[in-house]
C-alpha cells in the first residue's frame, strides 16, 4: 500500500492519482517545535560569514519536518485512514532560535 518513506500514501493534490477516495475522515495534523543546538549555531555563525549552505540547519529542518509528518500520519492512521491528501506544510518561528513545523492534510480512505 505504501509508497516512499511513510506507511501511508501522502499527496499534495486533492486526489490520489490512480485511486478513488471512498471515505473522508477530516483533518489530520502533526507538529513539532525545535530549537537550534548551540554547537550547530556556532558553526552556522561561522559559515554565515562566507555564505553557502548551512548543512546543520538543513538537516535540522528536514528531521523536524519528517517528525511533524510522522505525527500527522499516526493521527490519520488512528482515524482509520490509509492516505492523506492535499497535504500542506507551515513553518512559524515561536521564539528566538526556535521554530514550529506543522504538517496537515485531509485523512481519507482510498481503494
Amino acid at each position: 500500500m505504501s509508497v516512499g518513506k511513510y506507511s501511508i500514501i501522502l499527496t499534495n493534490t486533492e486526489t490520489v492519482p490512480g485511486r478513488t477516495i471512498v471515505e473522508f475522515y477530516g483533518l489530520a495534523t502533526g507538529n513539532t517545535v525545535r530549537a537550534k543546538h548551540i554547537g550547530r549555531d556556532i558553526m552556522a555563525g561561522l559559515k554565515n560569514l562566507v555564505g553557502g549552505e548551512l548543512t546543520g540547519y538543513s538537516e535540522l529542518l528536514q528531521d523536524s519536518r519528517r517528525e511533524a509528518t510522522e505525527r500527522m500520519v499516526e493521527q490519520a492512521k488512528s482515524m482509520g485512514a490509509n492516505a492523506v491528501v492535499n497535504m500542506r506544510f507551515a513553518t512559524s518561528s515561536v521564539a528566538q532560535g526556535a521554530a514550529e513545523l506543522f504538517a496537515y492534510g485531509t485523512a481519507v480512505r482510498v481503494e
Binding site: I9, T11, N12, T13, L54
Partner: peptide, 19 residues
C-alpha cells in the same frame, strides 16, 4: 495520463550569503 502510484516528494535547503 494514467497513474498507478503516488507519494509526496520533498527537497529543502538552508543557504546564507556572505558578510
Amino acid at each position: 495520463w494514467q497513474a498507478n502510484s503516488a507519494a509526496m516528494v520533498t527537497g529543502s535547503v538552508v543557504i546564507s550569503i556572505d558578510y
